[in-house]
Computed example of a mutant assay.
Amino acid sequence: MRILIAEDHPDNREMLTRRLLRKGYEVHCAENGAEAVEMAQSCAPDLILMDISMPVMSGIEATKAIRNTPDVSNVKIVALTAHAMESARKECMDAGCDDFATKPVDFAGLVALIEKYAA
């Protein structure tokens, strides 16, 4: 399974990359929302882990852009955010995210979520 991590914080990006590679996933990374939109088209991920608060283009804006791009509009997108309120979840889902996970990341829970979409 090919996963695109869209995360602006280098420590978070590195931790997720390292741990997902150990689990056998192919991992690509974007540092902002605009890069995520470009890379969604170039690396054709099966799933995107989308940080919501990023520079250049937010995860919400990037999700909407991906949903409006025919070649990648159906890719699964999981929002990652430190905002655990129901309003944040609703905003992510309304933008087109398929699921929602909070930070700090519960890695076992995240892997279970990824596996749900791999099936």
Rank of each mutant, 00 (worst) to 15 (best):
F107R: 10
E86Y: 04
P104N: 10
D106R: 11
E86F: 00
I77S: 07
G109P: 08
F100Y: 15
T102F: 06
T102G: 10
C92E: 03
K90H: 09
A101T: 06
I77G: 01
T102H: 05
A84V: 06
R89N: 02
T81L: 05
I77C: 05
A108M: 08
V78S: 00
A95N: 06
S87V: 11
V72W: 03
L80S: 13
S73H: 09
F100P: 07
V75S: 11
P70A: 12
D99M: 07
S87N: 14
D94E: 14
H83C: 01
D71E: 15
M93G: 11
D99R: 01
F100V: 06
G109C: 06
P70W: 00
I77M: 08
C97Q: 01
P104S: 10
D99A: 14
N74Q: 12
E86P: 04
E86W: 00
G109K: 14
N74L: 13
F107G: 11
T102Q: 08
V105T: 15
G96R: 11
G109H: 11
S73Q: 15
A101F: 04
I77W: 01
R89Y: 08
M85P: 00
R89L: 04
C97H: 09
D99S: 14
D106A: 12
D71Q: 13
G96V: 03
A108G: 13
T81A: 06
P70R: 13
D106H: 11
P104L: 09
A95Y: 07
S87C: 01
T81M: 08
A88Q: 13
V72I: 15
K90P: 00
T81F: 09
K103A: 12
C97S: 09
S73P: 00
H83W: 10
H83Q: 08
T81Q: 04
C97L: 04
G96L: 11
D94L: 06
K103T: 10
V105K: 10
C92N: 07
A108E: 15
P70M: 00
K103Y: 09
M93F: 07
N74I: 00
V78P: 06
C92G: 07
P70L: 03
S73W: 01
F100T: 05
G109R: 09
A95S: 13
F107H: 07
D99H: 11
V75G: 01
D71V: 14
A84E: 09
V78N: 08
D98T: 06
V72A: 13
F100I: 10
T102L: 02
A84R: 11
V78G: 03
K90Q: 15
A79E: 02
K103R: 15
A82P: 03
L80I: 09
D94C: 05
D99W: 02
D98S: 15
G96M: 06
A79S: 13
A95I: 11
C97R: 11
M85D: 13
L80K: 06
M85V: 02
M93H: 01
K90A: 14
A95C: 08
C92T: 08
T81H: 09
V75Y: 01
A84H: 05
P70C: 01
A79F: 02
D71S: 15
V105R: 03
R89E: 12
